[in-house]
């Protein structure tokens, strides 16, 4: 690349592959091509030496040592919390409640997005079905309009509200509970559907970070 990477006189493809030749991450054919080129190209040999120096500098050990234990503990706590909710949330001791109050900005953002979504979707459902005054649904009550399987989900916190609504509509889902402390929403299908297919569909969507059956419906998703 000497003199501004001018590869006009070189095998330009070989010159572009030099970084991966330097790291030994080329396939056999490409590696052979670059090797042959280097035999008669002094410019690329100099460039290769430069790239190796850049790589060495980048990989040189720094003086900073990172302590992974705190992050590991936080992530394991997040996993454990998701695994035992929502029952644990109801009877949480003060210490646990205090710890939850300090959960990450990620969860806070998720709660905000999902709470707004819950409000709007709830309003839309209310307008559509107009239940008599005083009636409301709890998790222990019959599902009503939500006749299909239930799943617990966590969405990407940066997901726009419009996309959340679109995703729910695509899978014929409504929000029946949440968000929990960990930002999880409980969804229910509005029509009978194959639980496995529903879970697979949700998990295939990159914006869905977590999707598991609730275990509360007899034919629930697995």
């Amino acid at each position: 690349m000497s003199e501004d990477l001018d590869v006009g006189a070189c095998d330009s493809e070989a010159a572009r592959l030099l970084p991966w030749y330097a790291t030994g991450r080329l396939g056999a054919a490409e590696s052979e091509r670059v090797g042959r080129h280097l035999e008669h190209c002094g410019i690329c040999r100099a460039d290769l030496a430069h790239e190796q120096a850049v790589r060495s500098a980048l990989r040189a050990d720094g003086t900073i040592e990172y302590a992974p234990q705190a992050g590991l503990a936080k992530t394991l706590a997040r996993i454990n919390e998701l695994g035992r909710e929502p029952d644990a949330a109801a009877g949480a001791p003060p210490a646990a409640a205090a710890r939850r109050a300090g959960t990450t900005r990620w969860l806070a953002a998720a709660v905000v997005v999902q709470a707004v979504g819950l409000g709007l979707l709830g309003s839309a459902l209310y307008a559509r079905h107009s239940p008599p005054a005083g009636e409301y649904e709890t998790l222990s009550a019959p599902a009503g309009a939500a006749a299909g399987p239930r799943v617990r989900t966590v969405f990407d916190p940066s997901m726009p509200l419009g996309e959340l609504r679109g995703l729910l509509a695509t899978h014929s889902l409504v929000i029946v509970d949440g968000p929990s402390d960990a930002g999880a929403l409980t969804l229910a299908a509005t029509r009978p559907t194959d639980p496995g297919a529903l879970l697979a569909g949700l998990r295939a969507d990159r914006r869905v970070l977590f999707a598991e059956p609730t275990g509360r419906d007899p034919g629930g998703a697995r």
Binding site: L17, P19, W20, A22, T23, R25, L26, E51, V54, R55, L58, R59
Partner: peptide
């Protein structure tokens, strides 16, 4: 970074 620090292929 992906190439030189983490050693990934192209």
């Amino acid at each position: 970074e992906f190439t030189y620090y983490l050693d990934h292929s192209c």
